[in-house]
Design a binder for these strands. Structure first.
Lengths: 253, 253
DNA sequence: CTTTAATGCGTAGACCATACGCAGAACTAG
DNA sequence: CTAGTTCTGCGTATGGTCTACGCATTAAAG
């Protein structure tokens, strides 16, 4: 009985199989001119250039000089293709934490790395993820995140929960940043003028009697200038890490 | 010069105008048989029944006994309709915090209330939100959230950031819970057997030498049984609130 | 009554994903 | 060398999507 690696078991989705490179080519038939990784790369190229909305089967096929239906020999469905795009879109994890870093600097770097990827490829946020991570690169990220918590006294389950918490925060922040970026582009205003314009619109809409606390925020000039998005990100991340620190202190005591 | 309420300024989107009920009907022409709120209610009904994917213009029109193109007299585009659906989908905020509650219990109730809404209407998570909140109900939620922080010494900007942090966490958690629910339904397994199946799949895929930390998590049996989703939610929320508590303590001192 | 404007909606166009079946290529068995 | 097998690429066709445009009808104003 092998302890891990077991060949049997319920069939895992074909898309996942190809992501792990477990597909042996049948010896018969013509040599494939298209490969699944070539298709996924082309799709990523299209998404990088023109956004996720531009990723249609025909567009990807055109990118490859092939016909639309040719893709279906390799990917099964468009959703499969999107799932595979997530894997190569994230790319490999930036590597394990330095051995002499404490958990907090390690996790901070881990969070910033994911944030950088999501800024570079905003379309990753628009792909509806269909389950817990099973693709190789995603698990690589998870492995490196767990590594940051190695020296802590946390039980394994809590390490996992914490990773979920941090990655969720990063995704959410990137989503918001991306939305205001897209929104400002759609409205035709400078990204820096977005928040002030928002504040002005709110001031015009809300009744101070119905929304007293909100009015106080507006009067404080919170929205008048856009503090760098990095500050906003750092603020939230530090709150979360403070909370984790409290837990670790509690588990240590 | 009015201090707030100013009629002039850059035209705000028609969809927003109708959400605030600022559209006066022109005195000419036939009486409208369709109203924008009637259309939005019908769309919400369809989404509640068959999911967001079922919300097409023709389907909503059928719900109303009208023709597809009739809707476009009132909503402008499907994206407009979706934006309006978010507003009525969330519904009114559950109300301000009790006056003698501290910020933590207030914010906890606020977070649970949003979570309840997102469990009831998972399709809210699939609507790509296109900017900061400007619809009436959304601002009601924000107002009540700010109210929870009234007694704290935090500056207004940080109150806002904290609300963003908490609501982001709630949305992210609901998204994950919803994804595993949909995933288990698609794979045909009981929702309770989802995590164990996931663990078994991981065990089959990963190489312990490449993924040592992940293997340790698996060996600890973390994924063997599904602890209630409420526990997972509470864990993350408590970490975040701990972090906020640390900030408040720091600002108080 | 005429003018004006807004409503409902039918038609049509431009996309989209994808089920199905056929032609040909490359291998194996005889 | 030939026949059989199997996989590749892809053309066609179907049913779905959103929505631009124009027309007939309705209701009020002058």
């Amino acid at each position: 009985m092998a302890e891990t690696k077991d060949d049997s078991g319920p069939a895992l989705p074909p898309a996942i199989e190809s992501a792990w490179g477990l597909r042996e080519r049948a010896p018969k038939g013509p040599r494939p001119g298209l490969t699944v990784s070539g298709i996924v790369d082309a799709a990523v190229r299209v998404a990088d250039a023109d956004g996720l909305a531009a990723v249609s089967m025909s567009r990807v096929a055109k990118e490859l000089g092939a016909a639309t239906m040719a893709l279906y020999r390799h990917v099964g469905s468009k959703d499969d293709l999107l799932t595979l795009m997530v894997d190569v879109g994230y790319g490999p994890s930036p590597g394990p934490a330095a051995p002499d870093d404490d958990w907090r600097t390690g996790l901070t770097r881990w969070a910033w790395a994911e944030r950088d990827v999501l800024r570079q490829r905003p379309w990753l946020l628009h792909i509806p993820i269909s389950g817990p991570p099973i693709t190789p690169q995603q698990l690589g990220w998870m492995e490196d995140g767990l590594g940051c918590l190695d020296g802590t006294p946390l039980p394994e389950g809590e390490k996992m929960s914490i990773l979920l918490l941090v990655t969720g925060y990063v995704r959410n922040d990137a989503m918001l940043a991306n939305q205001i970026a897209e929104g400002s582009r759609a409205a035709g205003v400078e990204p820096g003028d977005m928040m002030p314009a928002y504040g002005a619109m709110l001031a015009r809409l809300i009744d101070p009697a119905r929304f007293p606390a909100l009015t106080r925020v507006l009067d404080a000039g919170v929205l008048d200038q856009d503090d760098g998005p990095d500050d906003e990100f750092t603020f939230g991340l530090d709150r979360i890490l403070d909370g984790i620190e409290a837990l670790i202190a509690h588990r240590t005591a």
